[in-house]
Amino acid sequence: MKADRAPIPVFIPLFIGIIAISFSSIFVKWSDSPVSVQAMYRLMITAIMMLPFAGKYAGDARSLKRSEWGLLALSAAMLALHFLLWMGSLQWTSVASSTIILALQPVFVMIGAYLWFKERTSLGALFGMSIAFLGVFLLIGSSGFGGQEGHFKGDLMSLLGTAAVAVHMLLGQLLLRRLPSFLYSWLVFVMASLILAVYNQIQGYSFTGYSGREWGIFLLLAIVPTVFGHLLFNWLMKFASASTVSMSVLGEPVGASVLAFLILHETMYPLQAAGGALVLLGLILFLRVGASPKRPKEFEQKGAA
């Protein structure tokens, strides 16, 4: 149990956070800008919002070794790749399919932790993971049965983007052993936005000239799913167990699917729905038994949508 008592019932900010991260894919779908530009400004605006609080960590930043800067750069590159793949997947597949696959993030982290840190997990977690991946195969395979053109490409991009963010989080697990979580997040956001800026320059994408509507979407991406989503979950960790907050990963595909149905008029085909149900069932089993007890609490609940 937590020593601190939340000033309001925990379920209220948890519900707000789930709704907030569920809007991430909706904002991406609304935008007409290249996804790499959306991702760049989302991270850049978030980093600017965090800047007034970053000064007190200057000493920690100066004490970083060259190898640690290298790991930070690699972590940022994986975060940038995640945004390119996952946000790009929404151009090809449905919100429901993309976010359900993204919810496999804890499973990918567990696999990486086993290969990298030799962390063990239970048979129950492995059983849940197997069910979840069976659902993913059904989801991706359903692209030939009434799915939209390019559905397979979009689902595969979401799967690869999920693997990329898992590598980002595992690198963070190493760095958080000596870095404050705020400083780590801020440095990674800054570096990832710079990586995306270089990518956009190479691709010839404009940095300016976007409509007021597009700038509004960039701002919404920074504020809603980041501040009222992931940062709110970080705050909740002071009052609720990691397992409770971790279950929010199941809320995003459900919330995003409902929002996509109401706002974008998207629907799911029967095989897609069956695959999605299997993924969520597998994740419930996986999260309930506790897959990675050694993982720092900062990474037991974070998502990167």
Score class of each variant (00 low, 15 high):
residue 6 A to S: 15
residue 11 F to M: 10
residue 11 F to Q: 08
residue 12 I to Y: 14
residue 17 G to E: 03
residue 18 I to D: 10
residue 19 I to A: 12
residue 23 F to W: 10
residue 26 I to S: 02
residue 37 V to R: 10
residue 44 M to H: 04
residue 45 I to Y: 00
residue 47 A to E: 04
residue 50 M to N: 03
residue 58 A to H: 08
residue 58 A to G: 06
residue 59 G to H: 07
residue 63 S to R: 15
residue 79 L to F: 13
residue 79 L to V: 10
residue 84 L to M: 14
residue 89 S to N: 05
residue 91 Q to K: 07
residue 94 S to E: 14
residue 100 I to Y: 10
residue 107 V to P: 02
residue 108 F to T: 04
residue 111 I to L: 15
residue 115 L to H: 07
residue 120 R to F: 06
residue 121 T to W: 02
residue 126 L to Y: 12
residue 127 F to L: 08
residue 130 S to I: 13
residue 140 I to S: 07
residue 140 I to M: 08
residue 141 G to M: 13
residue 143 S to D: 12
residue 153 K to N: 00
residue 157 M to E: 09
residue 160 L to V: 06
residue 161 G to K: 13
residue 161 G to E: 06
residue 164 A to M: 05
residue 165 V to D: 02
residue 177 R to E: 13
residue 177 R to D: 07
residue 179 L to K: 03
residue 184 Y to R: 08
residue 185 S to W: 00
residue 187 L to K: 11
residue 187 L to V: 09
residue 189 F to A: 05
residue 192 A to E: 11
residue 195 I to G: 06
residue 206 S to C: 04
residue 206 S to W: 00
residue 206 S to D: 11
residue 212 G to A: 15
residue 213 R to E: 09
residue 213 R to V: 00
residue 220 L to H: 07
residue 222 A to C: 06
residue 223 I to P: 00
residue 228 F to L: 13
residue 229 G to W: 12
residue 230 H to F: 05
residue 231 L to A: 09
residue 231 L to H: 13
residue 235 W to Y: 10
residue 236 L to P: 02
residue 239 F to P: 03
residue 242 A to F: 00
residue 252 E to V: 05
residue 252 E to L: 11
residue 253 P to F: 01
residue 254 V to Y: 12
residue 256 A to N: 07
residue 260 A to F: 04
residue 260 A to L: 01
residue 262 L to G: 08
residue 265 H to D: 12
residue 269 Y to Q: 09
residue 270 P to G: 13
residue 271 L to H: 05
residue 271 L to T: 06
residue 276 G to M: 08
residue 278 L to T: 08
residue 282 G to P: 10
residue 287 L to W: 04
residue 298 E to F: 03
residue 304 A to Q: 04
residue 305 A to I: 15
